[in-house]
Simulated assay, not measured.
Amino acid sequence: MKIEHIAIWVKDIDKVCEFYRKYFGGVVHPIYHNPAKQFTSRFVTFDDGARLEIMHRPDIDHVWPVTSLQSDMLTLGHAGVQAPRRDTRDRMFHVEHLGFAHLSFSVGSKGEVDRLTKQMYADGIQVVGEPRTTGDGYYESVVLDPEGNRVEITV
């Protein structure tokens, strides 16, 4: 058994597909559009067969950006929902939540983790975790894709 694909709702399909193509070598497939459901998607396939489905529907627009910081609390989105602030990374685009936390790409070596992270930083990609060895032994960095999804770059 294997995971067939992972799907991500996004606002800008082309921008997100280009990120995964440029930095991780994904092959972007033709766009699919279902006008009756106002649904659009594209698959991005990687060398090992893994696939992402990058999806958009105009009624799915519920990113909860941080709208204010008050001591140890965050105010999220238009609803004014309050959530505890865990650390400075929460300020970027999101707050930790139940569900999928990140995608992880193995790039083969510590040197490639360092090189790719440095390239992304120079290109204006938000780096939220500098290259380091984690407590469980992974050498990784963490960046945000164009829609604020966490992406780990690891050996």
Rank of each mutant, 00 (worst) to 15 (best):
K2A: 14
K2P: 08
I3R: 01
H5K: 07
I6R: 07
A7Y: 02
W9G: 03
K11H: 15
K11S: 09
I13M: 13
V16T: 12
C17K: 09
C17Q: 09
Y20G: 14
R21E: 07
K22W: 06
Y23V: 04
Y23I: 05
V27M: 04
V28H: 10
P30Y: 03
P30M: 03
I31P: 00
N34M: 06
P35N: 02
P35H: 01
Q38G: 07
V44W: 10
T45P: 04
D48P: 08
A50H: 05
L52G: 11
E53P: 15
I54R: 01
I54G: 09
H56P: 10
R57S: 04
R57L: 12
D59A: 09
H62A: 14
V63T: 13
V63R: 04
V66N: 06
S68Q: 14
S68P: 05
Q70L: 06
L74H: 04
T75V: 03
V81K: 06
A83C: 05
R85T: 06
D87N: 15
M92A: 12
F93K: 02
F93T: 00
V95F: 02
E96W: 01
F100G: 12
H102F: 08
S104M: 01
F105T: 07
F105G: 01
S106N: 12
G108Y: 10
S109A: 10
E112A: 14
R115I: 12
Y121E: 15
I125R: 01
Q126K: 10
Q126V: 15
T133W: 05
T134F: 03
D136L: 06
D136G: 09
Y138R: 11
Y138N: 09
Y139R: 07
E140K: 12
S141L: 03
S141F: 15
V143H: 03
D145S: 07
E147P: 07
G148V: 14
N149S: 05
R150G: 07
T154W: 00
V155G: 10
